[in-house]
Design a binder for these strands. Structure first.
Lengths: 107, 107
DNA sequence: CTGCTGTGTAATCTCTGGCGTTACAATAAC
DNA sequence: GTTATTGTAACGCCAGAGATTACACAGCAG
């Protein structure tokens, strides 16, 4: 409910690679290499995403969506939450210094 | 309702810069320069976002959220839609070539 | 007319990060 | 054994987000 819900989370949100590694890929019966060729990316890219060392980019979100019949938003949304969380962890001190703009009702 | 809702849109989704330019910034009564200092970024960065020439990054989403009391997800979500749309425009041919993975129920 | 303020925007640099290719080692499967 | 699958190091490439500096031009107050 709170807007700053994300900022208050204790745990890092689920990386899309986890879904891919633990559910989607096993269910598909594909090897990493096969999937990579199918998606049109390198085997390395697939591997690093599975290990959550690389983000699912806009491009990858589209590719995964095509291959697995899901929406690109689904994959990218997961990634966004992770990105927002990571950035907040890294720079929370700086963000805390930013002051709220007063609602100057000079409308 | 359809998953590929985004892909079927005729119009490019609303860039967060538009909201900032047409609503949020005017309502605040701030100049671009003031806002830039407040956010801790360069005047140029603010200007380019207002003109929709630069995306709202994860970092900027946090800054805007702090300054205007909104959620980072709000700003970033708008940007995501734009990004997905742009990428799809640019590479739809390549994506169309990606074949759907058969649901091998080798479960 | 003269400034001052706010703004757009080149030019230039820096840094980060996503991706590919190649190659090698380790492990699992046959 | 031999082959298939996978992790990952070492390259190199290139795009893009951001800062800084500087200049041009608008609008408005005096």
């Amino acid at each position: 409910m709170p807007n700053n819900w994300l900022n208050n989370r204790k745990r890092r949100p689920t990386h899309p690679g986890e879904i891919l590694r633990e559910d989607v890929l096993p269910a598909s019966g594909l090897t990493q290499d096969k999937l990579a060729k199918l998606l049109g990316v390198s085997r390395r890219t697939v591997s690093e995403i599975l290990h959550e060392r690389r983000p699912v980019t806009t491009d990858m979100a589209h590719r995964l969506a095509r291959a697995f019949g899901t929406s690109p938003e689904m994959w990218l949304g997961l990634q966004q939450d992770v990105d927002l969380w990571d950035t907040h962890q890294a720079r929370r001190a700086e963000y805390d210094r930013i002051k709220r703009v007063p609602a100057s009702k000079a409308a």
